[in-house]
Amino acid sequence: MHTLKAEDVMTPNPVTVEETATAEDIVKRMVEHQIIRIPVVRDGKLFGMISRTDLMNNLIEDHLINVYGG
């Protein structure tokens, strides 16, 4: 029986952004592709990850996050 591997279940050629992409570009990409995290690449190599939480933490003031969280 064939044992499934990561390559069998992964989404190939994922949506990525370069490290120089702006927050606005990233938000547009996330909305356009309906994804909540996006890999950051440099020359095709994984460099980091940006999640929705990362965006929220960086773009919205602390006092809003405090209310947002409770």
Partner: peptide, 17 residues
């Protein structure tokens, strides 16, 4: 009262590693 979100931040400033 509330700063304008900086939409010019770069991916390298926002990402976690």
């Amino acid at each position: 009262f509330m700063a304008t979100p900086n939409l010019d931040l770069k991916a390298r400033d926002l990402m976690h590693t």
